[in-house]
Design a protein around this nucleic acid. Sequence first.
DNA 1: AATCGCGCCTGACGGC
DNA 2: TGCCGTCAGGCGCGAT
Length: 270
Amino acid sequence: MPELPEVEIARSGITKHISGNTIAQVVAHSASLRWPISAELATILPGQIVQAVERRGKYLLLQCPAGVVLIHLGMTGQLRIVPVGVVPGKHDHFDLIFYDGVVLRLNDVRRFGSVVWAGSEPYTHELLSEMGPEPLGEEFDGGYLYQKSRGRKITIKQFLMDHKVVAGIGNIYANESLFHAGIRPTTPAGRLSKIRSHKLVAAIKTVLTTSIEVGGTMLDFRDGTERYGYFHQELAVYRREGQPCTVCETEIQYERLGQKSIYYCKTCQR
DNA sequence: AATCGCGCCTGACGGC
DNA sequence: TGCCGTCAGGCGCGAT
């Protein structure tokens, strides 16, 4: 599923095709994704130039003079660049058609994704206003994580996936980062020491950066030439239950924690 | 304020 | 073969 590295790869992938390009038409093939696709997109966007494509957490921000379009890929969303005229397939829900004949197309099997008009002050939009710092930004450091987690009783794994704490960390990278930091996912957030907080932040940054560099975990952005991510080859624990730990060969554990899967090595992670 | 659990959605998969 | 239940999971939201 698209997580922060996949969204970042999609961002850089579509930027070269649509940045500086003028929107001609907006076509919604489905009435709704996570939320109804707002009719105002079709009113506002034609004639707008996409000035830049940014990312905040797992949201993409298409910056136009009139304001910002937010795109979230949910669980199964994929952005594709196709030539105008290509007939939309089964799970193609939304097209941004540009004057030069390029189409930005959103495909999403499970429709947990979304396209939202955020207006001219996107960071005050309710979807972004409460969001914590970027995990790869300077503000997110060991001291921040330590302070933020004091008094919290939820597990460190659930804490990491709270986007008010830090933006854009999902199930895969929470599990992987905790492995690399040697921390048991079920550790209460408020019990994490200062040293381990620093270690965890360093692990998160390394894991996310590595994944972006090698192309993410999953097949993601497509521009005609299909591109696969290689990070899945580097996954140490995620979906590796019963297989040997890459460090100590102990069988990787699988459990459910709050409706989510956790994977960890009971020897390496304490 | 913090925590918990639901529901949205489709396809893959296992059991009978 | 086909039907049905379960699982996968981001994340906003309502309940506690």
